[in-house]
Design a protein around this nucleic acid. Structure first.
Lengths: 242, 242
DNA sequence: ATATGTATTATTATATTACTAAATGGAGCA
DNA sequence: TGCTCCATTTAGTAATATAATAATACATAT
């Protein structure tokens, strides 16, 4: 402490982010007592108050609980607010297991087809246009490029917005993480990009036409296709965090 | 301050809960500047530090952001971590609009049928038994009673657990809120309870049999039935919070 | 004159320190 | 076994200093 030459803004957020990602990425075991407030304080050379604020933020996300004499403990995973924007982001730092990828797909296959159906029913013209636009940008970019990835994301998120249902819209962070995770597990050039584009186009066409049923079906196919391209868990070495 | 005769544990959590529910229930408008730290401090007669911790918790949930000179502001709804356990609970205090009820159903109809399908595929015997048990308790209770409600909830949550997918499991808070909200909008005795029980039984049977397809279908019917019993938005007076 | 850029200032959150109180787990003892 | 006491660690308060920001006033240039 007392190294006050430069101002570091939002110390509590920085600390929260650091500890939070460590927890999410398994650096600390569930149930384990973390370092005490005082220890964190010296580790990050921040005041204890800042550390406390950081811990409060993590407890608001269900990651930790703290009690006198018991210390700060990692909560069981079930208590984590797993759809929290930050938690989903932090989780991207680690390499996901095949199990996690499967879990993502299992939820996507529930949510996204229905989202496409709702988009077909309730989507506003400009929202549908945004989906078309994203598809256009997918066409204009190289497969597996940064831009293609971003356009793909916009495509899926655009559909969520077109549902005009706030729960679906909020799942955009989930979808973002799902796509990121997927990328890391797809064998390069597993499918022809043209095929992928065609599949996506079928979805937009159905939405455009207001055909709920077809929108659902084509989206379901899209996702099942993507899942089938996943790397099998060849060995899938579970990198256990030391 | 200085009223230290009795100890109130977890002040920051209490304050956070109070301000949080006010925000969620529309007492403070989005974008509006809340009272300052100092003002909250006197309002709740807590120290400014405690208030700060409370605010940090709310900002961790995406409800507020705070900056020097700008004060504490309510974030746009889109930023709220709407699947957060606390936010969902706090939201139950207010009377939901028909729109919200619809939004709940639109997501339920995506998630729960797929969940039933996964439960049929992957559910462990004891997990399936728990679902049966919940159904049994539904049978033993009066329609619309407290216990029936609780058994119904256990039924749906039991299915989530049987998916053995952590994302689905975490949606239990969402489902809990959805069911609560639904109750408030169903006309009493709209359908025969026997019919409801039969619909539920069809779902468990399919899960028990490991019949993915039938599990999905029967759950979809269950939810669509429930939705059809909703009160039409007769007038649906939007009670604007004063 | 109007627009644009630059200080000044007041306000409000941010951060630190030091101290007190309460809760808890465990050790020691009857 | 159950009770008491103790040490530890979080919970809470208070006082103070610092940094970020919005608004205002002022100056400059076009």
């Amino acid at each position: 402490m007392s190294d006050r030459n430069e101002y570091k803004s939002n110390i509590s957020q920085q600390v929260s982010k650091k500890i939070g990602s460590d927890i999410v990425n398994g650096v600390y075991q569930v149930g384990q007592a973390l370092p005490t407030e005082a220890e964190f304080s010296t580790e990050f050379n921040a005041s204890r108050t800042s550390v406390r604020e950081a811990i409060k933020m993590l407890s608001a996300k269900g990651l930790v609980s703290s009690k006198p004499r018991r210390g700060i403990r990692v909560m069981p995973e079930e208590a984590w607010n797993i759809f929290d924007t930050d938690i989903l982001t932090w989780a991207l730092k680690g390499k996901p297991s095949f199990r996690v990828v499967t879990e993502f797909f299992q939820l996507r296959v529930a949510v996204e087809p229905e989202a496409a159906g709702l988009a077909a029913q309730f989507g506003l013209p400009e929202q549908k246009a945004a989906i078309w636009d994203a598809l256009g940008r997918m066409r204009d970019t190289e497969d597996k490029s940064e831009d293609a990835m971003s356009a793909d994301l916009d495509f899926h998120i655009g559909i969520l917005y077109a549902t005009r249902n706030r729960f679906y819209i909020h799942l955009k962070d989930f979808i973002r993480s799902a796509l990121n995770v997927t990328i890391q597990h797809t064998t390069p050039a597993a499918a022809s990009y043209d095929e992928v584009l065609a599949t996506h186009e079928r979805v937009v066409r159905a939405i455009e036409a207001g055909d709920t049923q077809r929108a659902r079906m084509s989206m379901r196919l899209l996702i099942e296709d993507a899942y089938s391209l996943m790397k099998e868990p060849d060995v899938d070495i579970e990198v256990t965090a030391s």
